[in-house]
Design a protein around this nucleic acid. Structure first.
Lengths: 187, 187
DNA sequence: CGACCAGTTGAGCTTGTTCAAGGCATGTGG
DNA sequence: CCACATGCCTTGAACAAGCTCAACTGGTCG
């Protein structure tokens, strides 16, 4: 499957109700790409907005397509690694900025960003599940970011006022990865 | 490459010196498995003990081997997802227990565990980099676990006193994944 | 012996949590 | 049109988990 529009998330839910979002799935992302015969459900996918998707082309047809899938899953793994360092070693403020920058960069690659601005359908609770924080603390951290003039965020729209400067300030490492262009064109 | 003996870790280092361990590499694990043409360094690998490894057999030879590699990287991804929920939603004590259980289960599959006991070459500092805690807090948490009678840990050897019970107590989810046997035999 | 490395301990502090309440917008049924 | 529910955001105050800094212990190895 390939997502044409809308946002989804890979999520895991603990028995006592705690939830953790592994990664976000944005337009252009592949979902359920499973190159072996023993599928095991290790996380579930939930949609965060109305979603449009279609079946991905069969992989065996062309070598180029296989490459594309392989690269796609490498990028996905890079996102997981980013998420791990976010959760393990960044402060609340850094986690949120870093996540925002990642989402912004990913959407930019699909032409879905405009001067630091993107559509942003996430609630603070979802943000909390992604960053390993509580909803209350996400709220307070967002307020701080607004006060510092780093972002503008109101219903449905996020603006990162100086993406380059922020990325610089954070010493954001993995930017290079996102410059890999997927040779897949959305229809 | 495939690891024959010894431990290694996938690690990322931030500019200001903070470090985060993504995952541990144990005997039987593949390393640098990269099925596409555009390798990008997104984490580095460091050895934690003296290491023995050899070249993995070329993948194109057999369909079964391709399967094996695919399954191996699926398991690796499952480990990353485990790490994400550990860092995002578990407390210090839970993070350490959960990690210990994962290591124990993985070593068990290679026949490297014995009645809840495994060799354990990690320093508390490495443990801190893996769990997103400080070395000092890891120390205190380990003491608590010892006091509660959950583990025995002294130089080079970890014993989990009741692995089943602990796993139960933690509502450990992803156990099923580790029951996938890699059809690779170590030489 | 001295240096070094890993582990241990204490005291004070910061970050983020918990619990609980209230605000504001939207939608819905009477 | 009003009453009421619901979802999301906001706020406050008390609290706890984990951090920082700094010092000390004990083992190992040259």
């Amino acid at each position: 499957m390939i997502i044409l529009s809308g946002w989804a998330a890979r999520i895991r839910q603990l028995k006592d109700g705690r939830r953790q979002i592994m990664s976000f799935l944005l337009p252009g992302d592949l979902i359920g790409n499973c190159p072996h015969d023993m599928p095991v459900a290790v996380s579930s996918v939930v949609s965060l907005t109305p979603l449009h998707y279609c079946a991905a082309p069969p992989t065996k047809d062309s070598r180029a397509l296989q490459q594309a899938f392989a690269i796609s899953s490498a990028i996905e793994e890079a996102h997981l690694l980013n998420q791990i360092t976010r959760l393990g070693r960044l402060t609340a403020e850094e986690r949120i900025i870093d996540l925002f920058l990642e989402l912004y960069e990913r959407l930019s690659l699909c032409g879905l960003a405009d001067h630091g601005q993107i559509v942003f359908p996430l609630t603070q609770e979802v943000l909390a599940d992604a960053t390993g924080l509580t909803q209350v603390h996400v709220n307070r951290t967002l307020q701080a970011l607004r006060k510092q003039g780093d972002i503008t965020l109101n219903t449905g729209s996020l603006t990162i006022l100086d993406p380059g400067g922020l990325a610089e300030r954070m010493g954001r490492a993995a930017t290079s990865v996102t410059s890999l262009h997927l040779p897949i064109t959305l229809t």
